[in-house]
Design a protein around this nucleic acid. Structure first.
Lengths: 142, 142
DNA sequence: ATAGGGCCTACAGCAGGTAGAGGTTCAAGG
DNA sequence: CCTTGAACCTCTACCTGCTGTAGGCCCTAT
């Protein structure tokens, strides 16, 4: 039996985050001590590690929920898990592509700026006037 | 004089977002019609375009606030604007690097999976056991 | 028996918006 | 001039994925 602090330390997850996962139904409600404190089994530790590792790979919580469901029913076909992972891969690739476009634009902006005063600052000029941009970065940030 | 809808259409910003920018002090409070509707000047349109463009380049709102302040005082040195842009460039490069590590891991995961059932699914296996990973992706998502 | 760490609930807040309810205003067509 | 209906108004709640705080209990070692 582990306390919440033990799970926290072993998985590198903040205590509040574990309670949050319980609240949104990602972690099961554990048993309690006579005084009302949470007491976890080994299986809960594994589940939390799975969640954390998936988060580190950028999976959104909804996807993790699906992955956990799949993981709980070993006889189902693997294709679903596969497609979730592929979807995540696509998302990551999309974000990389967008960020690379941003990087290019930012680099150009910074490189061009050699004025002294704000009045002739290329950085601000480019921000003021979209038409100075080479790429169409219509998608925001991310 | 423009309505909020005109600003919205011209900059591709949702009406609510413009009101939100006003609320957090990024846009100044415009004049109102006799019936209480917002009426904007050309300068407001420019300012909003600046904000949107900066957001598209991934600048956080705080940075944009600084950039707008700088832009309003043309005699100050350009170095500050420069360093904000450089900081943003570093952030973007960091995020690209992290996402590339994720991509690598996800690709490997997806490529290795050729099992039929969940029981032997490499995707789930890797998620279960961090030690199967090549890289140390301790930073979460982003 | 007591000290002090760890645990409890509940709520507020972060970025950066988005969505909806319920009500008013504006401008064009009849 | 009047009506219609799109566009505007405020207010509030919600989104993701947590994190922090307040105020109070539990648990275990000494």
């Amino acid at each position: 039996m582990h306390t919440i602090g033990t799970l926290s330390a072993r998985t590198g997850t903040k205590v509040q985050t574990i309670r949050y996962y319980e609240q949104i139904g990602l972690m099961r409600e554990p048993g309690r001590s006579s005084g009302g404190q949470r007491r976890y089994h080994e299986a809960d530790l594994d589940r939390l590690a799975f969640i954390r590792h998936s988060r580190q790979l950028g999976f959104p919580l909804d996807a993790i929920r699906e992955l956990l469901d799949l993981s709980d029913s070993p006889s189902r076909p693997c294709a679903e898990a596969d497609s979730i992972a592929r979807r995540q891969l696509r998302q990551v690739e999309l974000r990389i592509a967008r960020l690379q476009a941003l990087r290019k634009e930012l680099k150009r902006m910074v490189a061009e700026c050699d004025g002294d005063s704000v009045a002739e600052c290329r950085v601000l000029e480019v921000l003021r006037d979209h038409s100075e941009c080479l790429t169409e970065h219509e998608e925001i940030g991310a």
